[in-house]
């Protein structure tokens, strides 16, 4: 058996891959949170619940309508985004002039309601969702075994994150979004429909969460609490990366997934707390986050 730093390489790479997978979800979720917070000034606590809803929509599409994984990858984000439009238009849009706290409380309440509804309907035990046939199996690499689906999740998440980054940094729509994040009132005096931009942005952000939910369905069991478990870590990721920073949330998401994986190899007892320890250190030394602009 080969070893690296005295640890079996198999285990090391296995944990690194797990870390990358977790990081893929952290990145997708914190990216959506960052975009929403940047433009809407809302700390979207419902993000985890909408991630869970995305996974459930995939499960429902498969089991009630016979629509498989690839359809879900398209339809679940759209369905959740439409629900996001409803939330933004009817509830969030009333809070923009108030303190952050109100948005946080409202979306926290929403998260509880959404989770409660799914729990009533589906119970807490969790439902299985099979890996799609096209992505079943795996490859034996020289240093480890790579399940195809896990490789796909990492690649898909990276691709979606980078596309989103390009959309925001390199397109006209992205320029509106960046400008409105800085000074919405002024952008509005140019004749830009900023309220519409806010709606679209919220829908897009929660659509990303739903996409992450569909990607997660074959890996974790589909359960009403899956969002609540991950969202706490994702908030820590967002705080570490810097609230509102796009590239920051992507890099920090993947990076912290890896750090978590490595900790599992070198100091397993610390693996569940390492992210929060890093958060505390970052808050103490660089309160705006690693990539945040301090104001």
């Amino acid at each position: 058996m080969t070893t690296l730093f005295g640890f079996p390489t198999q285990a090391l790479f296995g944990q690194l891959l797990l870390g990358l997978i977790n990081g893929s979800f952290y990145a997708l979720l914190s990216l959506g949170l960052a975009i929403i917070f940047g433009l809407l000034n809302i700390i979207n606590f419902a993000h985890g619940a909408l991630y869970m809803a995305g996974a459930f929509v995939a499960w429902i599409l498969l089991n009630h309508l016979g629509l498989g994984y690839w359809w879900s990858l398209l339809l679940a984000p759209v369905a959740v985004a439409l629900f996001g439009v409803l939330i933004e238009r009817t509830l969030l849009s009333r809070l923009y002039k108030l303190d952050h706290l109100y948005g946080l409380l409202l979306t926290f309440g929403l998260a509880l309601i959404i989770q409660g509804m799914f729990r009533l309907q589906f119970g807490v035990s969790g439902l299985p969702y099979a890996v799609p046939a096209e992505l079943a199996g795996g490859t034996r690499l020289p240093f480890m075994y790579l399940p195809t689906y896990r490789g796909w999740v990492v690649v898909a998440s990276l691709a979606v994150c980078l596309t989103t980054w390009l959309l925001i940094e390199k397109t006209k729509l992205g320029a509106y979004l960046r400008a409105a994040t800085e000074n919405p009132a002024l952008v509005q005096t140019f004749g830009v429909n900023v309220p519409l931009l806010l709606t679209v942005t919220y829908a897009f952000g929660v659509g990303l969460a739903a996409l992450a939910g569909v990607l997660a369905a074959p890996i974790y069991t589909v359960s009403p609490m899956m969002g609540a478990d991950i969202i706490i870590v994702v908030f820590a990721v967002v705080v570490i990366g810097g609230m509102g920073s796009i590239m920051g949330s992507i890099v920090t998401g993947f990076g912290l997934g890896l750090v978590e994986g490595l900790t599992k190899v070198f100091y397993p007892q610390g693996s569940t707390t390492v992210i929060f320890v890093i958060m505390a250190i970052v808050l103490l030394t660089k309160p705006a986050g690693l990539f945040g602009r301090s104001s």
Binding site: A175, R178, A179, E182, L186, T189, F190, G191, N193, V194
Partner: peptide, 22 residues
């Protein structure tokens, strides 16, 4: 304000309002 702007009125604010992220 967005509808006022659309009628053909342009505003250059005192603080200039140049965007740092653009």
């Amino acid at each position: 304000s967005r509808k006022i702007a659309r009628r053909g009125l342009g505003y250059v604010p005192e603080e200039r309002g140049v965007f740092a992220s653009l």
